[in-house]
Simulated assay, not measured.
Amino acid sequence: MSSAVDRLDSSQERDDYWNAYYADSGVGRPLPSQFAAFVAGELDGPARIIEFGSGSGRDTLFFAAHGHDVTGVDASKAAVEACTAQAAELGLDVEFLAATIDQDGLAAQLRMSPGSSVVYARFFVHAITDEEQTAFLDLAAALTSPGDRLAVEYRTVRDSSGAKVTGSHFRRFVDPTSFNAEAVLHGFDVTYAVEGFGFAKYRQDDAYVARALFARR
Rank of each mutant, 00 (worst) to 15 (best):
L110T: 10
D175C: 05
A183V: 02
A135N: 13
A212L: 05
A40T: 08
R171S: 02
N19V: 05
A163W: 01
D74F: 02
S178W: 12
V73L: 01
G196E: 08
L139A: 14
L139E: 10
Y120M: 09
H169W: 08
V190C: 06
K164S: 03
F123G: 03
S3E: 09
R158E: 14
E95P: 01
S168T: 13
Q12P: 00
A40V: 12
R14P: 00
L8S: 14
K201V: 04
V39A: 14
A200S: 13
Y21P: 01
A75P: 03
E42Q: 15
P176C: 08
T177R: 12
A75S: 15
S160Y: 03
G167V: 02
A210M: 01
L43Y: 03
D206V: 02
C83W: 10
N180E: 09
E131T: 11
A151H: 08
A87Q: 15
A121C: 12
R216C: 06
A108W: 15
D59T: 13
G67R: 06
S113M: 04
S76K: 07
A135C: 11
R217T: 07
V165L: 11
A207V: 06
I49C: 15
F197E: 13
A135P: 08
D16Y: 01
M1D: 15
R149I: 00
F199C: 06
L92R: 13
G28E: 02
S161W: 07
G162R: 14
V27D: 08
D24Y: 00
I101S: 09
Q34W: 07
V119H: 02
A141D: 06
A65G: 13
R58E: 06
V152S: 14
A79V: 01
G72L: 12
L106Y: 04
G115V: 00
V5L: 14
L97I: 08
S56I: 02
A108V: 13
P46I: 05
T60W: 14
N19L: 03
G105C: 13
A107M: 15
G187T: 09
S161H: 14
S160G: 04
R171H: 07
A215G: 00
S145Y: 05
A127W: 12
Q103N: 05
V119E: 11
T177H: 08
V194H: 09
I50W: 11
R172Q: 10
K164C: 01
L90F: 02
R7S: 07
G45L: 00
A200G: 01
F188G: 05
F173G: 08
D24H: 03
A141R: 10
D130H: 12
G147E: 00
P114V: 06
E132G: 09
F35S: 14
Y22M: 04
A107T: 12
T191D: 15
T156Q: 04
A98G: 07
R171Q: 10
R211V: 07
T84Y: 12
T191E: 15
D16I: 10
A64V: 00
H66L: 04
